[in-house]
Structure formats: structure tokens, C-alpha cells
Design a protein around this nucleic acid. Sequence first.
DNA 1: GGTAATGTTAGACT
DNA 2: TAGTCTAACATTAC
Length: 275
Amino acid sequence: MPELPELAAFSAYVKTHCLHKTITDVTTSDSKVIHGALSAFKKGLIGKQFSHTERMGKYLVIDLPDDKKLAMHFGLTGSLVYTKNDAESVRFSVVQFIFKDGSVLHWTSIRKFGKLWLLGSLQEDKFLKKLGPDALKISLAEFLSAAEKNKSKNCKAFLMDQAIIAGIGNEYSDEILFQAGIDPHHAMKDLSKNTLTILYKEMHTVLTYACTVRIKSIKKNKENFSMEKDRDAFKASYLQAHRHVDMVCPKNKNHKLKKSTIAGRTSYYCPEDQI
DNA sequence: GGTAATGTTAGACT
DNA sequence: TAGTCTAACATTAC
């Protein structure tokens, strides 16, 4: 689930609860999610403070002293949960950052596909280095030129390719294509310049709106927020509330959504409104 | 109990 | 060679 808007919410969450507090310990129930040796990871964090955090695509990058950084990726099922004390048990908590005041930031994950690692600079990391421009920062000109370079690529695969545009995953690619009225089966070369411009604009509109929804819900819940429970937070004209649920097209109640595998992923779309 | 699941990557394939 | 596609990863929920 964690795509660009969720990452924006995680970033806001860390800023609200975790900055400028000394880390007294780092514990984990499964060190394989930590890149490199656990001892080095702990050593790099204990006694330090988070000074700032930013989202980069689907990665969260937290600043530490001396230009060091902590990077997190959430995989399919990752989240963050902050608790005021270390006695509270948190479901699927895998890594715990314990602060001096007794509060804890839990990096949670059901399937443990995500990863955490320390890096000296952004440039040294092979994953971050491979990221394309952020979906909310890419210009229309860059977007159009990327479309030209990836003519034969399927449009949904294009949106989800982190090396082309960073931050979009399966759910939001469906939502963006739905709002743009584009059939997800198309290759990029099938789309006119005019259609590509609509796609670009919808990418912005959908992601910006989703960011406000996610940030609002993370603030409302303060601690222990869950995004899964918040599907209904999206307005009715969005696919979010209908996929998986009633399968009714938000644009026309007489249309039924279709589920099929496109670009290797489970996709939901309206065969009548997306052409 | 079988199946699918919101991400990424290595390796296979064309 | 380069672009594109598929299987695998680990675990849970339905």
C-alpha cells in the first residue's frame, strides 16, 4: 500500500512525533530487514537524533547528524506506528526506535518486504540513485520526453516504473488512469500528446489530493493510524472506495468495474469510461 | 485450505 | 544488446 501519498503522511508523522529526540536503543525482531550488520546499524543511531525527514518516491529518508541518513522502504505492507511508551505492543512491529522519553517509533511490516539502511549520502545508495524524478516534481516536458523514450511500454507499467517516475504503485496508477479516462491496456505510443497532457495533470491532481487525505487521517488518528481502514476517506468520485468493494464505476453507476491483470498487476478499471 | 495481496529485483525471454 | 516480462521473496487475510 505505501505509495507516494502514504509516504508523505509517514514523513509528516515522523516530523510530528519523532524529531529532535535522542535515540537510546534500536531493537528488532528480524534483522534481515536491516541492510548490513545490525551492530553497525545500532551504532549509527544510538545517541543520535532525527533532525529532518523527506520522502523520495516511495522511500522515507531521515536526516541524522554529520550528513548521515536513515532510509526506509515499506514494501507492500509496511507502516509506522508511534507509541508514547514502550509497554504498548504493536502488531507486526519489526524494528523499534526507542527515544529517551520512553516513546517508540515502530517500523511495522506484515510481509517484511521492506528494508531499512544507513547511508552516508544519497548518492552512494544504489536504490535511491536509480529513482527517476518524483511524480509531484516532474515537469510536463520531462514527462512527455519520458513517454517518447518509453513508447512501447504499457501505460500502467510506465506510471509504476520507479526509474521513470518515482512514487506511484499499483493502486494510484489505477486511480490516475481512471481519472484520466485512459484504458490501462494502452501502450504509451497509443496516447496522443493531448491525452498525455491529461494524464500528467491527473497524476498531479490525484496524488496531491491523496496526500491531503492521508496527512489528514494520520493527524486525526495521531497514534496507531491505519490506512487500510481509511479507504472511505477518499471522495466518492475516486476508484478507491469502489475497487474490491461494490465494483461500481464512480462516474456512472450503471457501469461495472472490471478486474484483470495488466502489466503484471491486479488492476481495476471501467471498460466503458476508460478508452 | 487455497488463493491473492498495495513493491522490487534478478534473471529469463523476445 | 536492449527492452520487456515473470517468478520469487514471506506472511497474512479472506
